[in-house]
């Protein structure tokens, strides 16, 4: 038995290089409780194999399906069709901003990934990331969080919270004005790497990068990145913290410490 099916209307921004962009409307039947990514899958499977969109895990772990849904950056795989349809009819789906569009909803993440590489962020760490990663509040009566790694069991490792989806880059007003900016994800990556690494040389190199031309001083402190991060990485908070670390080092030098 499958769930009751409902009709859903979407308008998708179609684009091909040299052809410009246009909105195209689609109607598909999807099961109740379905996510926007499932609706795109249904369009692709039943109506149009030429629809280009990125997708892999379908459960908000890979970061591939970040896009703008009704003008707001979200992961399509965990955005309810019913919720999106209530916001806007038809549901409007567009590619991320501030990254070159390859076709339809697919953006070129090469530059974004190069910045992540520069941040030295590796995706597995021997310690638990400190921030809660569940975006939606859990039932208050239980206050369940992620399972806590017992202190004496330091062999457990974890993937980092950042899924490199590009949402923070798309919402960032500084990024829009300035493509030399490292951007929120990479700066958060630098902060996280410095937090986790024991290597003083790497740490100093990363702080210099954060203090450099494309670094933290270009951020206009809009905090849009933190507000829209699906993984609660808090890039803006980390950028502010990096500024503090840079200033502390300068003052330390000034006073000969």
């Amino acid at each position: 038995m499958t769930a009751e099916s409902v009709a859903v209307d979407l308008e998708v921004l179609r684009y091909r290089p040299g052809e410009g962009s246009r909105l195209e409307n689609f109607s598909v039947q999807v099961a109740k409780g379905t996510k926007v990514l499932d609706a795109l899958d249904a369009i692709w499977a039943t109506l149009d194999h030429s629809l280009m969109f990125r997708r892999a895990c379908h459960h908000s772990s890979c970061g591939a399906c970040a896009m703008r849904i009704n003008g707001r950056e979200r992961l399509a795989c965990v955005t309810q069709v019913a919720e999106a349809a209530e916001e806007h009819q038809p549901i409007r789906v567009e590619p991320l901003h501030n990254l070159p569009v390859v076709g339809d909803l697919v953006v070129d993440v090469a530059g974004f990934f190069a910045r992540m590489t520069a941040s030295d962020l590796v995706i597995t760490r021997s310690a638990e990331p400190e921030l809660p990663v569940s975006v939606d509040p859990l039932p208050a009566s239980l206050s369940l969080r992620q399972v806590v790694v017992p202190e004496d069991l330091d062999r457990f490792i974890r993937f980092e919270s950042c899924i490199e989806c590009g949402i923070c880059v798309s919402v960032c007003p500084s990024m829009a004005a300035d493509d030399g900016f490292l951007g929120p994800a990479a700066l958060a990556g630098i902060h996280r790497t410095r937090e986790a690494t024991g290597d003083a040389t790497e740490s100093a190199h990363l702080l210099a990068l954060a203090d450099g031309d494309g670094g933290v001083w270009r951020c206009h402190s809009s905090f849009e990145c933190t507000a829209s991060c699906p993984q609660a990485v808090d890039p803006a908070g980390r950028i502010m913290s990096l500024r503090g670390q840079i200033l502390a080092r300068r003052w330390g030098r000034m006073w000969g410490r």
Binding site: H59, S61, V147, I163, Q231
Partner: peptide
């Protein structure tokens, strides 16, 4: 996929493979 990470390790039911006998933790889930 649950909306929280509830296990550190992979948890399997100690028996022949069957439906719903394994919980794999991945990132925050």
């Amino acid at each position: 996929t649950m909306d929280s990470r509830l296990n550190n390790m992979v948890l399997n039911r100690l028996n022949r493979p069957s439906d719903g006998d394994i919980i794999v933790p991945q990132r925050a889930t």
